[in-house]
Amino acid sequence: MSFELLDFINKLIAEETQELPPKQLVVETDSKYLPSDERVVRFHSITHNTIATHRQARLSEARAKYEAHRQKESLYNRAVREVPNSVEQIFHQIVGVITSGGDTVPKGWTLAHRGEEPGKDNDEELKKIWMRMYMLGFIDHKSKGKS
């Protein structure tokens, strides 16, 4: 028995199905072979449910991303707004945190900045340290900051 014949016939059937417009295909197919209305409804539901599930998942993911971004952004923006105008104040608050808390500030912070000279670059560096401390919660968000 040659299997090529059946491969060939099945290929022709698939081609003819592909080529025929859906309406014509339905008209030209014996109704006993046509998928039932219930089956068509089942396929409709699969499509709509799958789309809805994926939309919901994408929406939740986007919401979570936005929320994380918003939280990060708003904290940074608050830090920018709250940073004191004078370097003295910044320095004073940093020192306040370092000397008041005992073990609330990691030792590395005090060691890293103990020998700094005054000057433009160091002022900027102090501002950055202040902002990091603010964002990490070492500087009280309500009572400190710009006065």
């Binding site: 059937i13 309406k23 998928p35 068509v40 499509t47 789309i51």
Partner: peptide
């Protein structure tokens, strides 16, 4: 893709089901 999938008529489904059964 969602638009294309959301717009399948009953006859399109019949054609697709026959095609998948093949």
């Amino acid at each position: 893709v969602e638009e294309l999938l959301d717009d399948i008529s009953d006859d399109d489904y019949r054609k697709m089901i026959l095609s998948l059964e093949q």
